[in-house]
Simulated assay, not measured.
Amino acid sequence: MTSQQASQIDRSLAIVLAAVLSIVLLAVRFEERDTIALVDRIAGCLVLQYAQHITCIASLTVAQVIPPPQERGLLGHRLGPDSLWLRPRLSRLLALYHYRR
Results as ranks from 00 to 15, higher is better:
residue 72 R to L: 09
residue 19 A to C: 09
residue 92 R to W: 00
residue 30 F to D: 03
residue 9 I to P: 00
residue 78 R to N: 04
residue 54 I to K: 11
residue 60 L to C: 04
residue 35 T to H: 14
residue 46 L to H: 05
residue 100 R to S: 04
residue 6 A to K: 14
residue 15 I to F: 07
residue 5 Q to L: 09
residue 76 G to M: 01
residue 58 A to M: 07
residue 60 L to N: 02
residue 81 P to G: 13
residue 73 G to M: 01
residue 42 I to V: 09
residue 17 L to F: 09
residue 80 G to D: 09
residue 56 C to P: 06
residue 88 P to I: 01
residue 79 L to Q: 08
residue 76 G to Q: 03
residue 26 L to N: 10
residue 10 D to G: 08
residue 15 I to V: 13
residue 84 L to F: 02
residue 28 V to E: 14
residue 13 L to I: 14
residue 54 I to N: 06
residue 43 A to C: 05
residue 60 L to P: 00
residue 91 S to M: 00
residue 45 C to R: 07
residue 48 L to G: 15
residue 86 L to S: 03
residue 5 Q to M: 07
residue 92 R to M: 07
residue 22 S to W: 09
residue 4 Q to Y: 03
residue 9 I to H: 08
residue 98 H to E: 05
residue 27 A to T: 09
residue 83 S to N: 13
residue 92 R to G: 04
residue 81 P to F: 08
residue 2 T to D: 04
residue 50 Y to L: 03
residue 70 Q to A: 11
residue 32 E to V: 05
residue 101 R to N: 06
residue 83 S to G: 07
residue 50 Y to F: 13
residue 97 Y to L: 11
residue 81 P to N: 10
residue 1 M to A: 08
residue 37 A to W: 12
residue 11 R to I: 07
residue 100 R to V: 04
residue 22 S to A: 15
residue 42 I to N: 00
residue 84 L to Y: 01
residue 70 Q to Y: 14
residue 82 D to P: 03
residue 30 F to Q: 06
residue 27 A to Q: 08
residue 50 Y to E: 04
residue 86 L to W: 07
residue 5 Q to K: 07
residue 17 L to V: 10
residue 96 L to G: 01
residue 72 R to N: 11
residue 97 Y to C: 02
residue 93 L to C: 00
residue 72 R to Q: 14
residue 87 R to Q: 09
residue 21 L to W: 15
residue 66 I to Q: 07
residue 17 L to H: 12
residue 67 P to W: 00
